[in-house]
């Protein structure tokens, strides 16, 4: 993923925004904390042409009410996801997300549960079919996820 290209793309996507604020008044996260203010996230993007390293975009719950209501059809969810993608490439994904990606890499799923078969057999459920682990690893490698994981390990070493 070309970071500059993606950044330029979301700045263009954000352009129709006229700061009416319906996104913020529809946001369940903003309702309980000022940490994520979708209107300001968009404003910062347009005004400063950059993504600040605050990491606030990770608080988006992805409920999509903001873009459902946006009168100019700005896809805030897509913009926030791209901001998170860029943040991840810079080594800024939260540790809980990194854990999930590690689980995906080793198991092909992000859920983990001890005594899974016992739990399922209580309900007479068929054995869960698991994906070929090598296939998942290969696809994650090809799409750059392993490199992003490694950049997080390096960040940890620096810190």
């Amino acid at each position: 993923m070309d970071l500059n290209l993606e950044l330029a793309r979301i700045i263009e996507e954000a352009r129709p925004c006229f700061q009416c604020g319906i996104c913020s008044s529809s946001c369940p996260v903003y309702r309980v904390t000022p940490e994520l203010n979708p209107r300001l996230a968009i404003d910062n993007l347009i005004q400063k042409n950059t993504i600040e390293p605050s990491g606030r975009e990770w608080a988006c719950a992805l409920c999509l009410m903001c873009e459902q209501r946006c009168p100019t059809g700005v896809s805030l969810a897509h913009i926030l996801i791209t901001m998170k993608n860029i943040s991840a490439q810079r080594g800024g994904a939260p540790s809980s997300v990194i854990e999930a990606i590690h689980s995906l890499l080793s198991l092909g799923v992000i859920a983990q549960s001890s005594g899974l078969e016992k739990k399922r057999s209580k309900y007479n459920l068929p054995q869960l079919q698991l994906p070929d682990h090598d296939q998942i690893k290969k696809l994650l490698e090809l799409t750059g996820a392993i490199d992003i994981l490694e950049s997080h390990l390096k960040m940890e070493e620096i810190e």
Binding site: A61, V97, A100, I101, I110, P131, L142, T143
Partner: peptide, 26 residues
């Protein structure tokens, strides 16, 4: 069928849209 994680948008898609798209395609 032996499906993988869908993948979950808040973690996988947020981490890498490309990985999300290809794993969903599988």
């Amino acid at each position: 069928l032996p499906f993988n994680c869908c993948p979950e948008p808040n973690t996988v898609r947020s981490f890498s849209s490309e990985s999300w798209l290809v794993l969903a395609a599988r």
